[in-house]
Design a protein around this nucleic acid. Structure first.
Lengths: 204, 204
DNA sequence: GTCTATAGAAGGATAGAC
DNA sequence: GTCTATCCTTCTATAGAC
């Protein structure tokens, strides 16, 4: 594949990412993707065959990116408190750079739950069980955190960081009334959230 | 309007609710709505003029229902701790009955943030400020809960209950690996969540 | 590899009979 | 009020020239 091919193919892919993230699979149009990429509609099919195949590639890449990031942020040997601080700092920073990604992934997964098979192998889930959950269990035994269901805790941690990006439309209109910028609200959460979770689970 | 009209109109509306909640505006088809309602496609237009108008009515009714429920659950004079217990109990129970509603509302609001104007007048926001926020402030002053930003706390409370319904596709595949039913996981949250929040904000 | 032109299917909407 | 038939636009996808 020549250098020029690569560039066109990537231009198309990047355009598709934008269009799909913004409109979703159902709301996206091949013509709009071609326009964004500055090329002809026929070229889309030359490179990616069909809308479905193009979408699948976009979805897989984004979902993997998000999941990788999530797991990487949790892959360290710090105690839970420090781990949470790092997690929220880095993970929120990531979502600030890709603010539409979470809503996109969740929406498409609800529309078509089987899609998850291409991203979400049990290998990655095992990572959670074996590392994060083991760590939580240890800190429970050491009497440092209270007894709480691991999975419930894990979902709570994710919910707190992801939700504002999923409910951005609603949140922004609430924030507007209170005269607050979405970005400022999110920025504050980098430190608010670890505090919120730690306070909830720490033995005192 | 005769009794029979009423019935047909409602049959159509109910069918539209199902289709739109499941597929979203972009993914829904007038023909499918007609099929669900057991009537002809032309009748849809007879009663509702266009897909857009039908969608708008469905969206408004659902969004209002969700928002009303939310605010009603918070409209009582109990202290924060008891209020939270009641809130999660009732609000989660509501979402169990309408599990697709939150994802639908949030998605459509992201696609088209202006839609919020028809639902979300500042009157309702004022309710929050004047009642819930005042109460939080009082409990802060009384030294019963720690100092935390009211809006951040409010969003956290909502995030924890709504997120599993928005991320259901992903969550279910995590739960499957752990051999847990979505319904059981949700049921447990009715008591897990108030505990989680209270522990986080209560002075000890 | 890239374009123009167009086929062909799908979906929203309406006309008109009953 | 409800149906059948059909119009017309939009969209995906392909054919074929360069």
């Amino acid at each position: 594949m020549s250098e020029k091919d690569k560039i066109t193919e990537e231009k198309i892919f990047d355009a598709a990412v934008e269009e799909f993230e913004e409109k979703g699979m159902d709301g996206s149009r091949m013509q709009k993707i071609a326009d964004r990429a500055g090329i002809n509609k026929a070229l889309l099919h030359y490179y990616y065959r069909s809308k479905d195949k193009l979408f699948q590639q976009v979805f897989d890449r984004l979902a993997n990116k998000l999941l990788d990031r999530l797991l990487n942020c949790l892959d360290n040997d710090f105690p839970l408190e420090k781990k949470l601080k790092l997690f929220y700092m880095e993970h929120i920073r990531f979502m600030q750079k890709h603010p539409k990604m979470p809503a996109f992934i969740f929406h498409e997964l609800n529309r078509n739950p089987e899609r998850i098979q291409t991203v979400f192998n049990s290998e990655r889930i095992r990572f959670l069980r074996e590392n994060l959950f083991r760590q939580i269990d240890e800190e429970k035994s050491a009497g440092e955190i209270r007894n709480i269901d691991n999975l419930q805790l894990f979902i709570n941690i994710i919910a707190l960081s992801a939700f504002p990006f999923v409910a951005r439309g609603l949140l922004e209109s609430i924030l507007k009334v209170n005269n607050i910028q979405f970005d400022d609200f999110i920025e504050a959460r980098k430190t608010e959230l670890p505090e919120f979770v730690i306070n909830s689970v720490k033995m005192k």
